[in-house]
Design a protein around this nucleic acid. Structure first.
Lengths: 301, 301
DNA sequence: CACACTTACGATATTCGTAAGGATT
DNA sequence: AATCCTTACGAATATCGTAAGTGTG
C-alpha cells in the first residue's frame, strides 16, 4: 500500500490547522474522508503522525519531522508539473532554427514576428547558414527546424516542401540579353559572371546545370552576400543568377532580370526535420504557422 | 484531474525502456493499463510525452525534459517515506534523556544497554543533572524524557512513579549510632555532617525534614559527588545521609548504614514528561522498557 | 448539550485485466 | 505471421459523502 499525493496534502493541511474540521474545508473533503485519509497514511508509514485525544490533534515528533519534508515534496511536485504545463502551453520554451540566408531574410522574419506576438515567452534563435550547414545542424539536433533545399537522400532527415522558387538572370540596364523575354542557361557563358560562394546551394545548382548544358561560366568573382552580387551587376561588372525570392530582397536599381529557361529549374525550398525525433509543442506550433503562411501566399509546390 | 505517483512511475518505466510491453512487466501492470495510465498523464499535463508510431514510442522534447525531473521527484518521494519508516521502525532516531545522578548511574545504564542492543541505530544521549535541571530540560524540550523526583505542581509536566527509595544514615565503622537498628532524624544533629550540594533534591529533602523536627545540622562541609560523601564519612570526618539507591553505587568499605525513621521519608523517583507533546516511537519504546524493568525489580510504588 | 473525531455503509469514480482491433515489420 | 500499441468492456478496488457513534468540555 502506497502513499498518495492526496494523502500528503491532507497531512499538510491537518498539520497546519491542527484540526480535521478546519482542514477538511481547505482540502474540499468531508471530515470523515480526511480522517480516513490520515489513518491510511499513518498505516502506510508505519506509525502515528498525530496524537489524538478524541477532541484534539497534535503532531507526534515523527509528524513534526515529516512536515517540512512533506511541504518540500508537494512544492517540488507542483512546480515540476507547472513547468511541464508551461512547456506544453507554449508559455515557455526555446526553438532554434537554421535557415538559408534567402529564407532567413525573406519568409521567416514575418512569421517569427507573428509567432513572437502570439507566444512572447518562447525563446527563438535563428542561424542563417548555407544549405549543408542547415542540414547538419538539424541532423545533430543543434537546430529544431531547418529551412533549406531538399537534403541529399538522407536516412535521418525528412523534407517538407514549402515554396518553389525559380532562377532569374540579373544584368545591368540596357544589357544585350534584355532584348529577349527569357534567357537560356547556355547563353550565360558569353558574359562575365558574378557568382555566389561555391558552397552555396544556389551556386552548386548553377554549376551543375552549366555542366549539363556543356558551357563553362566566365567567372569574374565569387562573393558571399546576395546583395553584393546585385551591386556588382548594377555596376556593370557582369551578370549573375539569383533565386527569384532572393532577388526581391535586394536593391534593384540599375538591375534588370529575366527568367532562366531550358531547363526551367524548380528550386524547392522547405522544412528539414529529423525523421525520428518528434517536435516540441512550441516548434510544432511554429511549423504550423509557417505552413499556413506559405499556403496563403500561394507559393505552394 | 491530477497526476499520481503511479502515473509518474509508469512514465519513467516507459521512458526508460521505450516500450509499453517491456515496461508493463517492470511495473507489474498489463499493457493496456499502462497505455491508459500514460494517456491520462498526458492529458493532465497538457500534451504528449511520447510520440507514437503505432509500433514504437519515443520521447517528445517535453518528455525528454521531464524525465530527469520525474526521476528526482520519485527519488525524493521514496527517500522521504523511507526516512519516515526508519523513524517509526526505530532503525534511526535520537533520544535525549535527563536524569538525576543517582538514576543515571543506577537504573539507567542497564536499560540503556538493553535498548541499544535492541535498537542499535538509535542515538542516545544522557544528561546527569540535578532535579531542577532535569525538569527544566524536559519542559523546554531539550530532553525527551526525564528521570527525577516529582516536579513541583506543574501544568506542563507529568510525572509517572517508577521506584520508591528511602534515606539511610551513613557513618564510620564503630560509630555510637550503630548501636541502634534505625536512626531518628533528630539524632543527626549531634554529629558533624557531610552534606550534598544545597541545590540537590536529596539535600533539600534533608534540610526540610531537619527544619520540621526542629534540629539544625552541624554541617562540616558540602560536596557534589555522592562518592565523596562516602569517602569523607569513611575517613571519620562525620556522618551523612544518602538515598539507599545511591548508597549502593559507592564503595562501602569503612562505612556502615542505618535506615532513617521518624519520619520515614518515601523518596519517589520516576519519569518526567511534557504533558501535551506525545513521545516519539523510539522514546516510547524506551519508556516501555524502563517500566518493565522497574516492575520486574519489584521497586514499584 | 455542543463539539470534534471515528466508525459504518451505500454510492460513485477510478483503475485493472481480458479480449478484440489495427498497424507495422 | 508475429509483434506492439490501442480501444472496449466488465470486474475489482479505492474513495467519497451521509449518517450514526463515542468521548470530552
Amino acid at each position: 500500500m502506497n502513499p498518495s499525493i492526496k494523502q500528503l496534502k491532507a497531512f499538510v493541511a491537518v498539520a497546519r490547522s491542527r484540526s480535521l474540521a478546519e482542514a477538511s474545508e481547505r482540502v474540499h473533503l468531508s471530515q470523515p474522508a480526511l480522517s480516513i485519509a490520515i489513518r491510511k497514511l499513518e498505516e502506510t508509514v508505519g506509525g502515528p503522525l498525530f496524537a489524538r485525544t478524541t477532541r484534539q490533534l497534535s503532531l507526534t515528533p515523527e509528524g513534526e519531522a515529516f512536515l517540512p519534508v512533506a511541504l518540500r515534496l508537494l512544492n517540488d511536485w507542483e512546480e515540476a508539473f507547472a513547468d511541464l504545463n508551461e512547456l506544453f502551453s507554449k508559455q515557455r520554451g526555446k526553438i532554434t532554427l537554421a535557415a538559408l540566408p534567402t529564407l532567413a531574410a525573406g519568409l521567416l522574419p514575418g512569421i517569427i514576428a507573428d509567432f513572437r506576438e502570439r507566444y512572447p515567452r518562447i525563446n527563438l534563435s535563428l542561424h542563417d547558414v548555407l544549405a549543408d550547414e542547415v542540414n547538419q545542424q538539424v541532423r545533430e539536433g543543434r537546430a529544431d527546424l531547418g529551412f533549406s533545399v531538399p537534403p541529399l537522400a538522407s536516412e535521418d532527415l525528412v523534407f517538407e516542401p514549402l515554396v518553389v522558387d525559380r532562377y532569374v538572370m540579373i544584368c545591368p540596364l540596357e544589357h544585350p540579353m534584355l532584348g529577349q523575354p527569357s534567357v537560356r542557361w547556355e547563353q550565360l557563358a558569353g558574359f562575365p559572371f558574378i557568382g555566389l560562394n561555391r558552397l552555396s546551394s544556389v551556386r552548386q545548382d548553377i554549376d551543375r546545370i552549366m555542366e549539363e548544358v556543356g558551357q563553362p561560366l566566365d567567372i569574374l568573382c565569387d562573393v558571399n552576400q546576395i546583395a553584393t552580387v546585385g551591386r556588382m551587376v548594377a555596376a556593370g561588372l557582369g551578370i549573375g543568377v539569383l533565386p527569384s525570392l532572393s532577388f526581391r530582397q535586394i536593391a534593384t536599381d540599375g538591375i534588370e532580370q529575366r527568367p532562366l529557361v531550358a531547363p526551367t529549374i524548380r528550386r524547392e525550398l522547405g522544412i528539414v526535420m529529423r525523421r525520428r525525433d518528434p517536435l516540441s509543442a512550441a516548434t510544432s506550433a511554429l511549423k504550423a504557422m509557417i505552413r499556413e503562411t506559405a499556403n496563403r501566399s500561394c507559393h505552394g509546390p
